[in-house]
Design a protein around this nucleic acid. Structure first.
Length: 789
RNA sequence: GCCGAGGUGGCGAAAUGGUAGACGCACCGAGCUUAAAACUCGGAGAUGGCCUAAAAACCAUCGUGUGGGUUCGAGCCCCACCCUCGGCACCA
């Protein structure tokens, strides 16, 4: 009794479109607003299994919330700037814009065909001038408030993609996109000052009810360290070396000082050192190494600056100064005080160079990194190291300092298909924002896409002429474009007012709809997009442009769908599952139900795609359609049926709110199993079943609703709020001496005496009691009876 | 190394401190069928016992990574350890 899923799907989708079911009236005040967000996709052109898992399962929740009477905003858009379009342009000579919009059109169809209930009227497309105009406007606001800055810095460069990258886009020293080893370059680039928000980003996490692993990953990424700045004067010279340390308590144990090879003082001191040639050779050698090579080579290297001595501010001791690449120029002050007795790295280096080790904290073997009483530390001897820490800093003339691992966000890219940075340079080379009347500052089309390391926009004649015409002779354009993560840092604000030509969003709607109730996405964005979006929101909040300082109340990172072999899907392993094949054979609904059933959605686990899984869900759906043929309007509603319905309804709602759709589906199966034992089923029961099925299998549910004579759409019905009747009796376990010995069914108000009497009739209980009388009885009505003899 | 999340049948998994393994996959048996598919019914943690022609039912012991502990009672709480996954890592 197979149903024709293609026909059912086509009819249902046409019906929803005609009824305009999913367009959210944002100003509606009769229902409680709920903003459900899922990360907008890059329009790669084809929906893979990951897209299905992301959108179809989130859609189940959107539909469930609507049935439960919420005014649900469930928008969609496209993160449409980015490299693949440009690469297609380079490879096949197509227009990146055309390529992108063609893909968007295709993906709209695919998303509709999975039965996703997106509100397409709110669609945003990041590469559309009506959108990027406001990306540009927001950038100018950040620039005006000194949160965007152009400066020269050591940056990561991807030689394959021919562009700089943000720190967050470098994974294990490789480009996140193309896996190419990144290089370090010194370039003048645009940065957003996310580090100014490091503390706020950290503090905000404490209040968020997110899973600990997401919060911890962000905390680790921000990497706050509290310590002190201390100055080591150079003996007989003007200069001093400023170090950052988290262990000022060990100051008396410093036996040498180390500068990073890139530290500016190294060059200054070069003429003063006795071994200039050796130092220069070392600097040249380290300059050739990537940061990754340096950190992978645990064997430390370095040379002494002979003839130079630093003075320990605590005791006036003169100690040697080294240049070594185990000290990073980019962290702290680029210089450290070395305490071999209480730091593993310094210990290793001192060991290598035969440098002295001086213990200042009592305790175990060296290097000893734990706390303890101070020794050999002058007036501080005997005090607890932690307790004396700040007194030592004060005595040494230092000051408290905090350092972050987080770096400012590098946002300029030497690529074409991105949002043009809304900046022009005056004849002196000073940057100016482009006034809002000239926004959108459109992306020129007369460019050469071939990557040369030079930004493609530099080849545009039109752009240069445009700048000259508007700003005058001698003014020049900015040629870089923005990182696409800038586009995606605020798209969720635009959904509230996507067509507004006068503002980036609507203030009163933001007040009503923000923060976003629930944001569903991938764990790969934990320290990228999710951090950037929080930063943007906080910055815009401080500029009074948005009413909230955290964008997302709840965040769920979904798991990963693996190949049938349990391995990550990849073409080279040949284990890639194409959802289209399954949709064609079993229907979109079966694939949706399978994805919901595969495992909990609230945990970032990984689930293998079982080849028989979708088929079994299809069978389940067919069993439901067969049930519907047994509908009888005159059949009597029994108490058992009512309870079965109530149990399913309650369970699905509870589990849905926890993003546990697997047990929700199971609850539905239990109900269906029970209904199969009933000869004639009241129509009202089956209608309730159709409504509860609707979030999971929206097309079939619509079809069944019609067959059951329901009015309108099943998706516009109220959730069946059957009430769970108070139970009268329950089967509970009986234990003797804490060991399970059987089960008895008891009235919930049965007395302890009754419970014991009935339990004793069980042979297993009687045997276990061995004729003895109970010494103690634990009886929790409805839960357990434990007889201790 | 540090931080976080986990570890339950052949597989995906379920269980507010109270009958561990719901629900499903795969599997086994039976029915329907000329046959198969589909469908329907039933079974199933392991080991042993009892009864048998054989099975079921029934009974016992063991069983949620390992070892301890708290508790009348632990998959769940506490301590130590092992393993898997994720994050950070020469960050001073």
């Amino acid at each position: 009794m197979a149903y024709d899923h293609e026909d059912v799907e086509k009819r249902a989708q046409a019906k929803w479109k005609e009824l305009n079911l999913y367009e959210t009236d944002l100003s509606d005040t009769s229902k409680e607003p709920y903003y459900l967000l899922v990360e907008f996709p890059y329009p790669s052109g084809d929906l893979h299994i990951g897209h299905w898992y992301a959108f179809a399962v989130t859609d189940i929740y959107a539909r469930m919330l609507r049935l439960r009477g919420k005014n649900v905003l469930f928008p969609i858009g496209f993160d449409a700037f980015g490299l693949p379009a440009e690469n297609a342009a380079i490879k096949h000579g197509v227009d990146p814009k055309e390529w992108t919009y063609k893909n968007i059109e295709r993906m709209r169809d695919q998303l509709t065909s999975m039965g996703a209930s997106f509100d397409w009227s709110k669609e945003v497309i990041a590469c559309d001038p009506s959108y990027y105009q406001w990306t540009q406007w927001l950038f100018t606001k950040l620039f005006e408030h000194n949160l965007a800055e152009r400066r020269n810095a050591a940056v990561k460069w991807c030689p394959h993609d021919q562009t700089v990258l943000a720190n967050e886009q470098v994974v294990d020293g490789k480009c996140e996109r193309c896996d190419t080893e990144v290089e370090e370059k010194h370039l003048t680039q645009w940065f957003l000052k996310i580090t100014e928000y490091a503390d706020k980003l950290l503090a905000g996490l404490d209040e968020l009810p997110w899973r600990e692993e997401i919060k911890e990953a962000q905390r680790a990424w921000i990497g706050k360290s509290e310590g002190a700045h201390l100055d080591f004067v150079l003996a007989g010279r003007e200069e001093k070396i400023r170090v950052f340390t988290t262990r000022p308590d060990t100051l008396f144990g410093v036996t040498y000082v180390v500068l990073a090879p890139e530290h500016p003082l190294v060059a200054t001191l070069l003429d003063a050192v006795a071994n200039k040639a050796e130092v220069e050779a070392y600097m040249a050698a380290t300059a050739k190494k990537t940061e990754r090579e340096r950190s992978e080579n645990k064997e430390k290297t370095g040379v002494e600056l002979k003839g130079v001595k630093a003075v320990n501010p605590a005791n006036g001791e003169e100690i040697p100064v080294f240049v070594a690449d185990y000290v990073l120029a980019s962290y702290g002050t680029g210089a450290v005080m070395a305490v071999p007795a209480h730091d593993e790295r310094d210990f290793a280096f001192a060991d290598l160079k035969g440098l002295p080790t001086k213990r200042v904290i009592e305790g175990g073997d060296l290097p000893h990194t734990k706390n303890g009483p101070l020794v050999d530390s002058g007036e501080f001897d005997g005090r607890d190291n932690e307790e004396a820490k700040w007194d030592i800093v004060a005595a040494a003339g230092g000051e408290r300092a905090t350092n972050y691992r987080l770096r400012d966000w590098l946002v300029s890219r030497q690529r074409y298909w991105g949002c043009p940075i809304p900046i022009v340079y005056d004849p002196e080379g000073k940057p100016h924002t482009i006034p809002s009347e000239h926004l959108p500052w459109t992306l020129p089309t007369d460019v050469d896409f071939t990557p040369t390391g030079e930004a493609p926009l530099a080849s545009s004649k039109e752009l240069k002429e445009r700048v000259t015409k508007i700003f005058g002779e001698g003014w020049t354009p900015e040629y870089d474009t923005l990182d696409t993560f800038v586009d995606s840092s605020w798209y969720f604000l635009r959904y509230l007012d996507p067509k507004d030509n006068h503002d980036f969003s609507d203030q009163s709607l933001m007040k009503k709809w923000l923060p976003i109730d629930r944001y569903s996405g991938g764990s790969e964005h934990t320290t990228m997009h999710l951090l950037y979006a929080r930063f943007f929101t906080k910055a815009l909040y401080d500029l009074s442009l948005v009413p909230v300082d955290e964008p997302f109340t709840e965040r769920f990172n979904r798991g990963l769908i693996m190949g049938p072999d349990g391995q990550k899907m990849s073409k080279s392993k040949g284990n890639v599952v194409n959802p289209d094949d399954f949709v064609k054979e079993y229907g979109a609904d079966a694939v949706r139900v399978y994805l919901a059933f595969i495992g909990p959605y609230n945990e970032p686990g990984s689930y293998p795609w079982q080849l028989d899984g979708v088929a079994s869900m299809r069978k389940f759906l067919e069993r439901i359609s067969r049930l519907v043929e047994r509908a009888d309007a005159g059949a009597e509603m029994s108490k058992e049926l009512e309870q079965a319905l109530a149990r399913a309804s309650t369970k699905i709602v509870e589990d849905g709110d926890r993003f546990k759709f697997n047990t929700g589906v199971a609850a539905l199966m239990i109900l269906v199993n029970a209904l199969e034992d009933v000869q004639v089923i009241p129509t009202s029961v089956l209608r309730s079943l159709a409504i509860m099925l609707a979030p999971f299998a929206p097309h079939l549910a619509e079809d069944l609703w019609e067959k059951l004579g329901g009015e309108g759409s099943v998706h516009a019905q109220p959730w069946p709020e059957a009430e769970l009747a108070a139970e009268e009796e329950r089967t509970i376990g009986v234990q003797v001496n804490g060991k399970h010995r059987g089960a008895v069914t008891l009235a919930l108000d049965a007395s302890e005496e009754t419970a014991i009497a009935i339990a004793r009739t069980l042979p297993t209980v009687a045997t276990a009691m061995d004729g003895k009388e109970p010494k103690r009885v634990i009886y929790v009505p409805g839960k357990i009876l434990n007889i201790v003899v």
